[in-house]
Design a protein around this nucleic acid. Sequence first.
DNA 1: TAATATTGTTAGCCAAGGCTAAACTGTTTG
DNA 2: CAAACAGTTTAGCCTTGGCTAACAATATTA
Lengths: 159, 159
Amino acid sequence: MTDSNPNASLTAPSIPGDALPPVEQHAQQYATVRNAHETELIEDYVELIGDLLAHRGEARAADIANRMAVSQATVSKMIRRLNELELVTSKPYRSLFLTEAGQKMAETSRARHDIVLHFLRALGVRDATARIDAEGMEHHVSDETLAIMQRFTEQQQNN
Amino acid sequence: MTDSNPNASLTAPSIPGDALPPVEQHAQQYATVRNAHETELIEDYVELIGDLLAHRGEARAADIANRMAVSQATVSKMIRRLNELELVTSKPYRSLFLTEAGQKMAETSRARHDIVLHFLRALGVRDATARIDAEGMEHHVSDETLAIMQRFTEQQQNN
DNA sequence: TAATATTGTTAGCCAAGGCTAAACTGTTTG
DNA sequence: CAAACAGTTTAGCCTTGGCTAACAATATTA
């Protein structure tokens, strides 16, 4: 027990701007996050497949399973979903490829990811940490913030 | 082996530092994100309950449902889980309260959230956007990055 | 105080994203 | 060329976090 003060300002630095937001806005925040979660994994898969194709020339289920630290069965199931969403094409027992929509998504995700990663490094975060944080953050950064991050990174580099 | 890649450089800007990370590191990144996702929602609930208690004196299931834009049934089910995790105490049809562990989690989440939010504002992101982004980002920012964000915000303010 | 409105709970459904075990395919090699 | 191995898929299970509908408890008000 660190504080015997039952309820006054345990948490809040009580900056006036930090009251509860109006209900609608608050609800919007959570809804946006829930929404991001739905597409997040899909984007991660597509982005990784794009990277594997670019760097290795092929994307096999086993590679994905290894890189994501997930079972092959999980990957296989996910590939079925990506197929239904028409993001990848796959013949059984063969390497995957991205459809046009898939390539577009991969590029967007990759760009997003890179901006966040470079921003974190420019901020002074160590590389290993930056990579982990970027992986988690990338799906939750708005276009507005993304643009600001990019500008910041460029300014840092012109010093 | 199967080098069926006729037209390289479709996607990649081929910046040398941006090759695929080694498998173990890459796997670590994804695992960390998956892990964060497991605790994320729990933290959001606890944080919100803490905020409601601080600003309103009570936390009712209906308020949570409204603020999260989620059905009351969902909240009810979640509260059962929070109870099992010994993060909240609840008597049926009464306001919720946080256990000691719950309060600790609420404080930590709140602090984290505030640091990210203030950082984004200091960066120049508009308030409404900053709030949405902070809500999504907060669970994916390492302590290291958090410290850097805090320092950055303070420096901005001393201008 | 009885009727009504609000709030909370329960039951039962669904999809997503994990898993293991088992079956199947394709490749390598003795 | 057959056997062994590596890779892929399928089946079936589990947990989470949503939902709706029906019911129960409390609060409000006529």
